[in-house]
Amino acid sequence: MLPARGRNGRKSRILALPVSRGRAVCRRVIGMHTAWDTVGDGEFFCPACGGDRNYQRLTGRRRFVLLGLPVVPRGTAGPVIQCAACQDFFDPDVLDHPTTTRLSAMLRDAVHTVVLAVLSTGGTTSRTTLDTAVATLRGAGYDDCTEERLVALVDALATDAGRVTEPDCGPGLAIELHEALGPLAPHLAPAGREALLLQGARIALADGPYTPAERDVLTTAGCALTIDTDEVARLLVAARTPS
Rank of each mutant, 00 (worst) to 15 (best):
M1F: 09
P3F: 15
P3K: 09
A4W: 15
N8I: 03
G9E: 09
K11M: 14
S12V: 14
R13W: 13
L17P: 03
L17W: 04
P18A: 08
R21D: 11
R27F: 12
R27P: 03
G31L: 07
M32G: 05
H33S: 14
H33C: 00
D37N: 06
D37G: 04
G40S: 08
C46W: 02
D52W: 08
N54S: 08
Y55R: 07
L58D: 15
T59K: 13
L69H: 13
P73V: 01
A77T: 07
G78A: 03
P79I: 12
P79Y: 09
Q82D: 03
Q82P: 01
C83T: 01
A84C: 12
Q87V: 06
D88C: 01
D91A: 09
D91I: 04
D96P: 00
T99W: 10
A105D: 07
A110D: 13
L116P: 03
L119I: 11
L119F: 09
S120E: 12
T124M: 08
T125Q: 07
L130Q: 04
A135D: 08
G141E: 02
Y142I: 14
T146P: 06
R149G: 15
R149N: 15
V151R: 15
V154T: 12
V154P: 02
D155K: 01
A156H: 15
L157H: 03
A161V: 13
A161P: 00
G162N: 14
V164P: 00
V164E: 14
T165D: 15
P167Q: 11
P167K: 11
C169F: 10
P171Y: 04
P171Q: 06
P171S: 02
L173I: 02
E176N: 13
E179L: 11
G182T: 05
G182R: 04
P183R: 01
P183K: 01
P186N: 06
P186V: 14
L188H: 08
A189N: 02
A189W: 02
A191W: 09
R193F: 10
L198T: 15
L198M: 14
G200A: 09
A204H: 08
D207C: 02
G208Y: 06
G208N: 02
A213T: 06
V217T: 13
L218P: 05
C223I: 08
L225E: 15
I227H: 02
I227K: 07
D228P: 00
T229S: 14
D230W: 09
E231F: 06
V232L: 02
V232F: 00
A233K: 00
R234W: 10
L235F: 04
V237Y: 13
V237K: 03
V237T: 04
A239Q: 02
A239H: 03
P242S: 05
